[in-house]
């Protein structure tokens, strides 16, 4: 017999996300891949705000939001409770948050959770800034991106180019914690997200999946560009799909003819200033070198 309950999406429509939101798209894919036997702890951010306007909730699974920076700690507590209920083998525990909640303010709690070796999947939705508060820069903001706290300017110093800090390498940090499952993908590949989530929950111990999720207002793109931006980010080498099992890179984006970063950057408002000045053009070259370095580092061309 068909179980109609299970045919419903775990993240219901009617949420307040922007049209074309990459984060909501990815989160729905993650939720459906996890299924109903899951408890989610969610940090503050766009995903939380748009899905739970009191007294409504778009979540068809048990879901808790406590604070911006403590989804990992809350998830540890949920797991401890499930252990006492002898349900920790049947119910999956997932913590999730944005790049700000992951790379920056919640970083310590995530490290603590990983250190405890708990069987919890952490999913980071990386739209490369604090979208919920108006696109301020985070530790995940890429070089040259204009955000509201790293705005592009008219000046002569490096400040004029937008963000000029390196994007924190969370994948390497996750691997350094000895995680058995670490993966990266983008909202351009929904079936890849699904496959990775399904794989992650079969692995013992903590797992980390980082998903680049294009942000319509923040990246200044149109709602129909979400999937294309997600795919392009991978195909330039800037944000490749990666899958590490027991510390070994077992799957990756194959790049035979890399897309030039200029094409990817030019499609987005957050980088458009780079195309207007000599200093900006230098930055595009530098960003190309970052993509090339990734292709080499992960062997994407092999």
């Amino acid at each position: 017999m068909k179980n109609t309950k299970n045919n419903k999406s775990m993240l219901a429509p009617g949420h307040r996300g922007c049209a074309g939101c990459g984060e909501l798209l990815a989160a729905r894919t993650v939720a459906n891949a996890l299924g109903p036997n899951t408890i989610i702890a969610n940090g503050t951010g766009c995903l939380e705000v748009t899905t739970t306007p009191y007294p409504q909730s778009a979540w068809r699974m048990p879901w808790i939001h406590s604070l911006f920076e403590n989804a990992a700690g809350v998830a540890s507590g949920i797991l401890a409770a499930l252990k006492q209920q002898k349900k920790d083998k049947e119910i999956k525990v997932v913590a999730q948050g944005g790049d700000g909640g992951t790379f920056d303010i919640g970083f310590g709690l995530i490290s603590g959770m990983w250190e405890r070796g708990e069987n919890i999947l952490y999913v980071c939705y990386d739209n490369e800034a604090y979208a919920n508060t108006g696109m301020q820069a985070s530790g995940a903001t890429p070089w040259g991106s204009s955000t509201t706290t790293t705005p592009a300017g008219e000046g002569q110093t490096i400040d004029a180019i937008g963000s000029h800090q390196r994007k924190k390498d969370m994948i390497a940090i996750a691997l350094a914690h000895g995680l058995n499952y670490v993966a990266q993908t983008t909202a351009g590949f929904l079936s890849d997200i699904e496959a990775k989530v399904k794989k992650a929950v079969t692995m013992e111990g903590p797992a980390y999946i980082q998903i680049m999720t294009p942000c319509i207002p923040g990246w200044k793109i149109s709602p129909d560009q979400t999937l294309a931006m997600g795919r392009m980010a991978a195909k330039t080498g800037l944000y490749p799909q990666l899958e590490y099992i027991n510390g070994e890179l077992v799957n990756k984006t194959k790049i035979t003819k890399p897309i030039k970063v200029g094409e990817y950057l030019n499609a987005q408002g957050r980088f458009k200033h780079l195309f207007k000045t000599e200093q900006g053009k230098e930055q595009i070259k530098y960003i190309q070198s970052l993509a090339d370095a990734n292709i080499k580092k992960y062997g994407l061309d092999k």
Partner: peptide
């Protein structure tokens, strides 16, 4: 826990469960 902030968060999750 790795901090009091985390300890309080952990008991939050467990209590909510």
């Amino acid at each position: 826990a790795e901090s009091e902030f985390a300890a309080a968060s952990i008991v939050t999750g467990a209590s909510a469960t």
